[in-house]
Simulated scan of single mutants.
Amino acid sequence: MNALWWLALPVLLLPVWWHRRKREQHQAVPLATARFLPRTEPRQTREWRWNDLFLLLVRCLLLACAIAWLADPVMPWRGDTVIVAAGTDPQWADKQAAQAGLAQAERVTLPAARAIGFLRAHEREWRPEARLLVLGDIPMPALVPEFGRRIELRTLAQAPSKDERRVHIVSERAEQWRRVFAAQGVAIDETPGEQTALIVWDRADAPPPSLRAPLWLVTHIAAFPELDKAAQVGGLRYADSPRGRLWHSAAWPPQDVKAARNLLEDWQRLHLGPLAYTAPPRVFAASPAVRAPEPSGALRGILMALLAALFVLERILTHARRR
């Protein structure tokens, strides 16, 4: 629908019409010999004011830029492209590109989570005959994306990163808490530091204000006033505080292996977020029903800057013309 704004180009005739209809009034000045001349009334005459041609040109350019900004023009300039997710095995990527006949194509490296969104937002930048290949550990989107061109996706799942999660425990039942985390390979910090991701506070007194961590497991609500009116989800209370995010459950510490596993699963699900699954390889066929993406791009920003500059220049010239 954006391209329909080009139909408004005839409005460029408005500044020409406005300048054309300007009238210049001639004032009659009495002369001594005026009585010998036929009497005529003062009148207005229409004439082109080409002396302000520059102002006319600026106004036409102002309207043209406004129409172009609304139409959101995009000049297709990209050719065959291979989009590679960051961290992908280079040898595997070279092999897949060669098999697809795109060994000499342009390479674009993006974070895996941004690859599909980047294609959707910049789809119009590729020429109609361009071929696109996406490689790497691309996470499966919630909905199957649709594109206005053919796009091939080849994925390779990477081994999950072994991010070490470090826990600091403050409790009179420290050994019981240690058994909970030891089965999951979580490192225990005797002294909390910048790498500490979780603090277990199993005491009735409040922690020192300087003690901070992204996540807290709290057993006594009285030590944390933020939990008095905290929201609940799945039997857990949670609240954000200057110290970090607080979680509380009356069932802590876990009494058996199943409860300990549930505790760590809640940690993953509610705080770290769900795990991403690799999308299966597939070919996205061109869909004629796909709507154009939202207006965006460097050209649109340039047009907005040019539009603002022309508006300021037009106001200056108009003010100077009236003086």
Rank of each mutant, 00 (worst) to 15 (best):
P145T: 12
G185A: 03
P15V: 09
L153I: 07
S241K: 04
A309E: 03
G117R: 14
A276E: 15
V108P: 09
E106T: 12
Q25I: 06
A97G: 15
V283G: 09
R124P: 02
P192I: 00
F54P: 08
K162Q: 10
D89F: 03
L102W: 01
A159D: 02
L236N: 06
E41T: 14
L110Y: 13
R154I: 12
F311W: 15
S210L: 05
A64H: 01
F54M: 09
E265D: 12
P274I: 04
A66K: 01
V170L: 08
R245P: 03
V170M: 06
V167K: 00
W126D: 09
P295F: 04
K162S: 07
D205T: 12
L57F: 11
F224M: 11
P38N: 05
H168F: 10
T278F: 02
R212F: 03
T88A: 11
P274G: 05
L264I: 15
N262G: 14
A121E: 13
F118T: 10
E164D: 14
A213S: 14
R127A: 09
L263F: 07
H122I: 01
R322H: 08
D137F: 06
G273R: 08
H26W: 08
H271W: 15
P280H: 07
Q255G: 13
D202L: 04
K258F: 10
R49C: 07
Q96R: 15
S241T: 11
K229L: 10
A289T: 15
L306W: 15
D205E: 15
A8Y: 02
V58H: 03
V170F: 06
G244I: 03
R78P: 05
V11E: 04
R245Q: 12
T278L: 03
Q255W: 01
E123C: 03
Q176M: 07
S241L: 01
L307D: 11
P15M: 12
A3D: 10
H220K: 10
T219P: 00
A222D: 13
F118P: 04
V11D: 05
Q232A: 12
I316R: 14
N51V: 11
V180N: 07
L102V: 13
A32T: 12
P128C: 06
A8L: 13
A66V: 08
A279R: 04
R124M: 09
P73K: 00
P38H: 06
M304F: 15
N2R: 10
T191L: 13
A103E: 15
